[in-house]
Each structure stands twice: as C-alpha cells, then as structure tokens.
C-alpha cells in the first residue's frame, strides 16, 4: 500500500475510482442538485470541504478513538463540518444556499464521506488522507459539474445562467426533471465503462 505514490492516491478519485461514476456512491445529491451547473459546483465544493476536513481530523485522531465507537465519532466529526459549511453558505451565499435547499445538511449522510473516513482516513497517514480526500472530492465535483452542465444546457439552453443556445431552442424539459438526472447519469456511467474497458 505504502509503495503507491502520493499522486496515485489523488489521481484514483478522478477516474479509476471516481466516487460517482465507478463506485456509485452518494447518488442522492448527484441526482437531486444537478439541475444547473452552479448548483452542481457549489455542492461539489461543499463536499470537497467536508470530505477533506473530516478525513484529516479522522486521520489525526484515528489512534485514540476506540474501535467500538469509531463510526459514532466519525459521524459527529462529519456533522460538525457539514453544519459549518451550511452556516457559511447561508451567511455568505444566501441565494445558492436557498437553491441547494436541504441537500447541504444532507451531506452528513453522504456515504462518500463516511466511506472515505472509514476505508481510508482511519488507516492511512495524514498526508495520504489529504491527497485521497482531495482526489475523491474533485472526482465527485467533476462528475456533478458535467451532469449539471449537461442538464442545464439541454433542459434550459443555458450554462451558468448564461443563455447559449439562443431563443429558438426548445428546452428539453425532461432533463431538468428527475428522469433527466437518471438518463444523464446512466449515459455517463456507461461512457465511463467503455473508457475503462478499453484500457
């Protein structure tokens, strides 16, 4: 394990172990908030923040936490950082916080975060944990951003609220609806499989 380079720990989250497209974790926010690119990006950044900070804390305290209560401890740590992120968004970016609604507080139950804390941060050094968390977070954000952009472009003809397809474009309403999220995600996972199978 330790022979793997630090760069590998970062890179694996982007493609080969992408949390959304390969591990298929945390799909609830992926499907729910990707109605627009800006929502997807905000959600991604919030997850990077929560994932990195909680994984770091977990990695630091991993030796002193008794095995029996580790999940409970991790959950409290994660919930703390999620609440911080939620309060910060509410104070500084009220309109984005309004658009994301309950999905920021719901990062607490996002299985990517508990999963990385349990599977990686509690067994690896602080430095490796940092790289792993940043990689996984970025992989999550990239997947969300692609799906969010695709849905916003097809569903409302805009990207980051800037109209690009012109007025003559008839928006495909289904892409904004939940069904559009499933279709988009399915296509992306399929594409990912084609790419990884070719290697």
């Amino acid at each position: 394990m330790d022979r793997r380079s630090g760069f590998f720990e970062f890179k694996k989250g982007l493609i080969s172990q992408n949390p959304v497209l390969v591990l298929l974790l945390g799909l609830c926010p992926v499907l729910a908030v990707t109605t627009s690119a800006i929502n997807a990006l905000t959600m991604g950044v919030a997850v990077i923040f929560v994932l990195t900070t909680s994984a770091l804390v977990v990695s630091v305290v991993k030796r002193v936490v008794p095995n029996q209560v580790r999940i409970a401890t991790f959950t409290i740590i994660i919930a703390t950082f999620v609440t911080i992120a939620d309060l910060f968004l509410k104070a500084q970016f009220p309109s984005l916080s309004k658009a994301l609604g309950p999905y920021v507080p719901l990062i607490v139950v996002n299985c990517i975060i508990l999963g990385r804390c349990e599977a990686f941060a509690s067994k690896n050094s602080v430095f490796r944990t940092l790289l792993d968390a940043l990689g996984m977070g970025s992989g999550f954000t990239i997947a969300l951003l692609i799906l969010g952009s695709m849905r916003e472009i097809l569903g409302s003809g805009k990207i980051f609220n800037i109209s690009i397809l012109g007025n003559s474009y008839e928006p495909m309403l289904i892409m904004i609806l939940p069904a559009g999220a499933f279709i988009g995600l399915g296509l992306m996972v399929g594409l990912m499989n084609i790419i990884t199978n070719k290697r």
Binding site: V61, V64, V65, P66, V69, A72, T73, I76, I77, A79, T80, T83, I84, L87, F88, K90, A91, Q92, P94
Partner: peptide, 25 residues
C-alpha cells in the same frame, strides 16, 4: 471519554460558528 470529548469539541465549534454567522444570516 472519546465520544464525550468529541461532542464537547463539536459543540464549542458550532456555537462559535453560529455566533459568527448569526447576524449575517
């Protein structure tokens, strides 16, 4: 002890954060 400490620490952090952001919110 571990759970207690983590909870206390978390409580303090959140109280501080809440105070900081309350007026802005």
């Amino acid at each position: 002890l571990t759970l207690g400490l983590v909870a206390v620490f978390s409580g303090f952090t959140l109280t501080y954060m809440y105070q900081e952001t309350k007026s802005k919110i």
